[in-house]
């Protein structure tokens, strides 16, 4: 049994009287690609937000390896090694591609207000190091030629890639992707799948929400299914696909 990297135990979240998540328990094994699927409004993004500290869960616990995440603010969760992208957390459109990736490198530096304003030698060195790192990341994804373009001027696929590169720049232990394929073409989606597979080969654990089933089925080792805030199935893609409750959730109970 591979040790779990992310463990979610009895996670419950209410928005006022609305129950968004109800006693959700699962774990993401280290080194796996773990998919989270479910109909719209099932609570997938809420779950991501609870894990990354955007809002503290009403009840339940979350661990990254042995470190409890529950109640930590987002930047502290990021500092522990969780990077995420999201449909709503868009890249910074008024900044260049390079600057976006440099923000992703934020946690790899430490220069503060005075050091930066005075351009102390230590900060200049750090800046050079971060710039080199960011450029390397961009080269790896063939975006180096566009390093100085404003992100807002890129097409959607390019922006998505910048966001992904930004998330990877921090060297995370766990990469969380919220619908990375939304709005991509077939071909881009295939390339995204290849990328995720290659990240897995490098040992990165990936946790993704995705609606594109062909992508989920091709890249995920395990899949969990949320419906109305409850975990209704978890297993290999094949197991989940054959699960009766999953079919019912998607097809409105008319599955035969």
């Amino acid at each position: 049994m591979i040790s779990p990297l992310l463990r979610v135990v009895g996670l419950t979240h209410n928005f006022g009287g609305l129950r968004a998540l109800e006693q959700v328990t699962f774990s993401v094994p280290e080194g796996a690609v773990f998919g989270l699927i479910g109909p719209n409004g099932a609570g997938k993004t809420t779950l991501f937000n609870c894990v990354t500290g955007v809002f503290p869960p009403s009840r339940g616990d979350i661990w990254l390896a042995e470190v409890p995440l529950t109640g930590l603010p987002p930047h502290a969760v990021a500092a522990l090694g969780i990077s995420r992208t999201s449909q709503n957390l868009r890249p910074w459109r008024d900044m260049t591609v390079l600057e976006n990736v440099l923000v992703g490198c934020h946690l790899l530096g430490s220069c503060g207000l005075l050091g930066s304003a005075l351009r102390l030698p230590a900060c200049r060195r750090e800046e050079r190091r971060l710039r080199e790192l960011a450029l390397q990341c961009l080269e790896r994804v063939h975006l180096a030629d566009h390093a100085h373009d404003l992100v807002g001027e890129l097409p959607l696929g390019g922006q998505r890639m910048v966001e992904l590169t930004r998330a990877l720049a921090a060297n995370p232990r766990l990469l969380m992707l919220d619908e990375p394929a939304a709005g991509l073409h077939t071909r881009e989606t295939q390339d995204l799948g290849d990328l995720i597979a290659s990240l897995r080969e490098q040992g990165l654990t990936v946790f993704l929400i995705e609606h594109d089933m062909s992508l989920v089925m091709s890249v995920c080792d395990r899949v969990a299914v949320l419906d109305h805030g409850e975990l209704i199935a978890e297993g290999t893609p094949r197991e989940v696909q054959a699960d009766r409750r999953v079919l019912e959730a998607y097809l409105g109970g008319a599955a035969e």
Binding site: H75, A78, A79, S86, L89, S116, C123, E127
Partner: peptide, 22 residues
């Protein structure tokens, strides 16, 4: 600088900046 980029990033989208560790 690193802090300046973090500031510009949070000025545009606080949630995304926090997710990047700011």
């Amino acid at each position: 600088s690193r802090l300046g980029r973090a500031l510009r990033a949070l000025g545009e989208n606080e949630g995304a900046a926090a997710a990047a560790g700011v």
